[in-house]
C-alpha cells in the first residue's frame, strides 16, 4: 500500500502524487490546446478545404458548361450544315424539276405547234382539195360551155379540152 502510494521503489510502481501532477498537467494542457490552439487550426483547415473543394467544383462546372456550349455550337454547326445541304439539294431538285418541266412544256408546245401546223396543213389541204374540186367543177362547166359555144367537131372539141386540161395541170 505504501509502495503503491509513494512510489520511489521499483520501475513498476505507481506513484499517486506523480499521477496527480500528471493528471492536472494533462487536463490543463488539453484545456489550453482546446481553447487556444487546435480549434483555430481545425477551422483554418476546414475553411481551406472548403475553398479548394468549392473552387474545384466551380471549375468543374465551368468546364462542364464550356463543354456543353461547345457541344451546342457543334450541334448548331452540324445542323446548319445539314440544312444548307438540304437547301442546296432542294434547289438542285427544284431546278431539275423546273428544267424538266420547261423541257416538257417546250416539247409539248413544239408538238402542239407541229400538230397545229399539221392540222393547218391538213385543213389547207382539204380546203385546197375542195377549192380544186370547185375549180374543176367550174372548169368543167366552163369548158362544157365553151364546147357548147363552139359546137364544133368533136375532134376539135376534144383537142380544146385536152389543151385546157393540159394547161390546167401546168398551172
Amino acid at each position: 500500500m505504501i509502495t503503491f502510494l509513494t512510489g520511489g521503489g521499483g520501475i513498476l510502481s505507481f506513484d499517486t502524487g506523480f499521477a496527480i501532477w500528471v493528471l492536472i498537467s494533462m487536463l490543463l494542457f488539453l484545456w489550453a490546446m482546446g481553447k487556444f490552439a487546435v480549434p483555430y487550426i481545425v477551422e483554418a483547415l476546414d475553411d481551406r478545404e472548403k475553398r479548394i473543394k468549392d473552387s474545384l467544383e466551380s471549375a468543374e462546372k465551368a468546364i462542364e458548361r464550356a463543354e456543353k456550349i461547345s457541344q451546342e455550337n457543334e450541334k448548331a454547326l452540324r445542323e446548319a450544315e445539314v440544312r444548307a445541304q438540304k437547301i442546296r439539294k432542294e434547289a438542285i431538285e427544284e431546278a431539275e424539276k423546273l428544267r424538266t418541266q420547261r423541257l416538257d412544256k417546250a416539247k409539248e408546245e413544239a408538238s402542239k405547234i407541229i400538230d397545229d401546223a399539221k392540222k393547218a396543213i391538213e385543213q389547207e389541204k382539204q380546203r385546197a382539195i375542195i377549192e380544186l374540186r370547185d375549180e374543176v367543177a367550174d372548169l368543167a362547166v366552163k369548158s362544157a360551155s365553151i364546147i357548147i359555144e363552139s359546137e364544133l367537131d368533136s375532134e376539135k372539141n376534144k383537142k380544146i379540152v385536152e389543151k385546157y386540161i393540159g394547161n390546167l395541170s401546168k398551172n
Binding site: T6, G7, G8, T16, G17, F18, I20, V22
Partner: peptide, 12 residues
C-alpha cells in the same frame, strides 16, 4: 510514512 509524495521529479 509519507502518504502522498507530490515531489517534482525528473520525469515530471
Amino acid at each position: 510514512p509519507v502518504f502522498i509524495d507530490f515531489s517534482i521529479t525528473s520525469k515530471l
